[in-house]
């Protein structure tokens, strides 16, 4: 059982230009928690600060103020503490065309985290572990020898998921994992994520702008608007009974096949 908590996290970016250094508040006083075995969806439009939250969570950015706690302990952002944290918290990036290095094979992408986190030592162990990871994301183990440009978007995103699973994390952040994929294969990737979440008892932060999949795949929804979480609660409640005007607007905008148009 692991929990990851954000306590009053603020992230400001200093903007260049002009006489006065202006600041942009990307994330304003955000608090939430992710638990093993549960999926939390973070919903909001572009520019609302969703991806900044992902970066803060992955320690790619440092918060201006506030605390990030893992199992009740503040996350260290260097040294062995960070290494341990990286083993426990992993991320799937948005764009599978950018998140895999075009120079390296799929095998390299999967072998590195395995070796870094001591999951495989010898070459044979690594090969076996890589094949096993590929099978888990329902790819042919033969694909280890391929380069990213030889694969489709869906296959690449599966590789990215496999890479995130390699250190056997407790918490997985999925930053719009299907927004760059073809509509026809989105459901396959999302179902895969959901299956893995159940099998591994992962805590998942599913970042998206799609209310329908957020409701379907997550237990809890956080609605983000201009850097703030404006509404949070169990999925059905947030969607069916939205309190904040922005959530109401979002729910209205989502296509509803049951509602008949008054023509």
């Amino acid at each position: 059982m692991s929990t990851l908590e954000f306590h009053n996290v603020v992230k400001e970016y200093r903007l260049r230009g002009g006489w006065h250094g202006r600041t942009l508040k990307a994330v304003k006083d955000v608090s939430f928690a992710i638990e093993s075995g549960k999926t939390v969806a973070l919903v909001g439009q572009s520019g609302s600060g969703k991806s900044t939250i992902a970066k803060l969570l992955m320690q790619l950015e440092r918060p201006t103020s506030g605390q990030i706690l893992f199992d009740g302990v503040p996350v260290q952002n260097r040294g062995a503490g960070l290494r341990q944290y990286r083993r426990d918290v992993q991320m799937v990036f948005q764009d599978p065309f950018a998140s895999l290095n075009p120079f390296h094979t799929v095998g390299h992408h999967l072998a590195r985290p395995l070796k870094l986190h001591g999951k495989a030592k010898t070459a044979e162990e690594t090969d076996v572990a890589v094949a096993e990871l590929l099978t888990r994301v329902r790819l042919d183990p033969e694909m280890a020898a391929k380069h990213p440009h030889e694969m489709s978007g869906g296959q690449r995103q599966r590789v990215a998921i496999a890479r995130a699973l390699a250190p056997q994390p407790r918490i997985l952040v999925a930053d719009e994992p299907v927004s760059m994929l073809d509509v026809s294969i989105r459901l396959g990737v999302l179902n895969l994520l959901a299956d893995l979440q159940r099998a591994e008892n992962l805590g998942v932060l599913y970042i998206t702008h799609d209310l329908a999949t957020a409701r379907h795949f997550s237990d809890e929804i956080l609605v983000m608007y201009q850097g703030e979480i404006v509404e949070a609660g169990p999925s059905d409640e947030v969607i069916l009974n939205p309190q904040h005007p922005y959530t109401q607007l979002l729910a209205e905008a989502a296509p509803n096949p049951e509602k008949r148009l008054a023509l």
């Binding site: 992955m58 790619l60 990286r86 998140s99 895999l100 290095n101 590195r112 985290p113 870094l116 390699a166």
Partner: peptide, 10 residues
Amino acid sequence: DYVAASRVSG
């Protein structure tokens, strides 16, 4: 992203 991804990998 692949640079960020390798940082995330550790």
